[in-house]
């Protein structure tokens, strides 16, 4: 009896569906709370290649809901993509699991998402989702969107040319500071587990060609109130007017939109990305920073903890996570002071 026996017994998947799953290559964008759930289930389901991309490292406040990580990962400040892929290789050694530490940008997406059959959304921000949407439409690759805050969230499958796209529903990025974030509203584990699981359900339907794209919908769930609502999106794409899927605009993919700094959801931290990608000597920073504060490091990053409670965690590609602030301008100042431009 093979390891996927129970999944194959489920009639809509069956043996043919299982073969399709095993031949698939899936990109998991972001490996925080949603991404952990998604990566875990896709690996267990036997997806042939699971590529996990994340820009962050494990923090103590992640453990309440991000079930692939533990206290060792916090102590070692392991990048999430590495911690997740190492853990999941022990779950399923018969598939290929790629853990990539990095940011998904209009430049890097061309490499990260060129050869995949499906993209699943584990990101924590609107900007990356607009980029994924652009890429999906441009390359005709389906993606599954999910978002979550507090006790509720939504999921939606986007099949280019068939269903409405993300921008049909959300034409523009919310203005900075107007959207709820996990920092202000919090988030509970049951919500991310349910939303992540619904994303995987849609992903498996897409991989096994059992997804019905003639009845597009968005699902909204509130796990605290016990609400489950399905909003019918039939006719929305045909109604036209979407700048991306009707108008052909690819504002995020072509780099006209999108900032180089992002507040990390729930982390009291800001990621700063240099305007051009770099290949830094982390060892040099480890030595240079010794007089400035407490310096710790692992093969992927160097962290400088400053006396005022802020910190700089620098990755080899030049990105840094500035801890102890949610002000982008403050974070950029700290970056230029300790890393330079």
């Amino acid at each position: 009896m093979n390891r996927y026996h129970k999944q194959q017994l489920f009639a809509p998947i069956g043996e043919a569906g299982q073969r399709a799953i095993q031949h698939a290559r899936v990109l998991v964008c972001g490996c925080g709370a949603l991404g952990s759930v998604i990566a875990d289930q896709l690996v267990r389901a036997g997806v042939g290649v699971v590529r996990i991309v994340d820009r962050d490292f494990v923090d103590i406040t992640n453990l309440q809901r991000q079930m692939l990580f533990d206290e060792d990962d916090v102590r070692q400040q392991t990048p999430k993509a590495i911690a997740a892929s190492e853990k999941l290789r022990r779950v399923n050694s018969e598939i290929i699991i790629e853990g990539i530490v990095g940011d998904i940008t209009s430049e890097t997406i061309r490499e990260l998402a060129a050869d995949v059959d499906l993209i699943v959304d584990g990101t924590d921000n609107y900007e990356t989702r607009f980029l994924l949407n652009d890429w999906s439409l441009e390359k005709n690759i389906p993606w599954v969107h999910g978002g979550c805050i507090g006790s509720y969230g939504q999921v939606m499958a986007i099949v280019p040319g068939k269903t409405p796209c993300y921008r049909c529903i959300l034409p523009e990025e919310p203005d900075p500071g107007t959207a709820l974030t996990c920092d202000t509203a919090g988030v509970i584990a049951p919500a991310v587990h349910v939303i992540g699981s619904l994303e995987v359900s849609l992903a498996l339907q897409l991989l096994t060609k059992t997804f019905d794209d003639s009845k597009p919908s968005i699902w909204h769930v509130d796990v605290w109130r016990g609400d489950f609502r399905k909003i019918d999106l039939t006719g929305l794409k045909e109604a036209g007017g979407c700048p991306a899927c009707s108008g052909g605009q690819r504002d995020w993919l072509h780099g006209q939109r999108g900032a180089r700094s992002a507040v990390l959801c729930g982390r009291n931290a800001v990621q700063v990305t240099p305007s051009s990608r770099a290949k830094l000597s982390l060892e040099k920073f480890r030595q240079d920073w010794q007089q400035l504060g407490v310096v710790t490091s692992n093969p992927y990053l160097v962290k400088l903890a400053l006396n005022d409670g802020t910190s700089v965690t620098l990755f080899g590609d030049g990105r840094a996570v500035i801890g102890g602030t949610e002000e982008i301008s403050v974070a950029r100042g700290i970056y230029s002071r300790y890393v330079g431009q």
Partner: peptide, 25 residues
């Protein structure tokens, strides 16, 4: 559709579902 939010009128007896699209994850 979003661009019709300013034109479409809500009338007595209507049934509405309003979903906020959140961005966390």
């Amino acid at each position: 559709p979003r661009r019709q939010h300013g034109e479409v009128t809500v009338e007595a007896g209507d049934s509405l579902e309003i979903v906020t699209l959140v961005g966390g994850g």
